[in-house]
């Protein structure tokens, strides 16, 4: 539902752009400014992950609705090397690059829904969403 925002990720300025667009969309969905920052931080992590491992990819942002709850959906798609051991990649403090090992598990902590779909040699798709707390 609604339109989606497709953002190419190929340089570190794109990471900043993606998280700022995500914050703006979260504001439209009615999230508090604290939650907007949380969503922006999660987008920053998965966008950086695209850059680090796949070099390029795409972030798709959209508003979602479930009954009377509003939320923001974030999908990160790349055709990179894929994640050989997802369970390990999701461990806090584990990193195969030079990060702090908090990228994917950090994003998962920040969002309500988080799903990784990855095929080695084909690429990775991360789908995550955050819902507004009922008033």
């Amino acid at each position: 539902m609604g339109e989606e925002l497709r953002l190419p990720i190929a340089a570190d300025v794109d990471v900043v752009e993606a998280r700022q667009q995500g914050r703006a969309l979260a504001a439209v969905a009615g999230f508090s400014s604290g939650e907007q920052t949380v969503i922006a931080a999660a987008i920053s992590e998965i966008a950086r992950n695209i850059l680090m491992y796949a070099k390029k990819g795409e972030i798709i942002l959209s508003l979602v609705q479930n009954g009377d709850r509003q939320g923001v959906s974030v999908v990160a798609i790349d055709q990179g090397p894929g994640i050989p051991d997802i369970e390990r990649a999701m461990q806090y403090g584990y990193s195969t690059s030079h990060g702090v090992g908090a990228g994917l598990p950090g994003a998962k902590r920040l969002m309500d829904e988080f799903e990784v779909d990855s095929v080695v040699g084909r690429g990775t798709t991360i789908t995550m969403a955050k819902w507004r707390r009922a008033i």
Partner: peptide, 10 residues
């Protein structure tokens, strides 16, 4: 600073 993500913290 707009967000403090893992890279900024590190």
């Amino acid at each position: 600073l707009d967000v403090m993500d893992s890279f900024a913290v590190r």
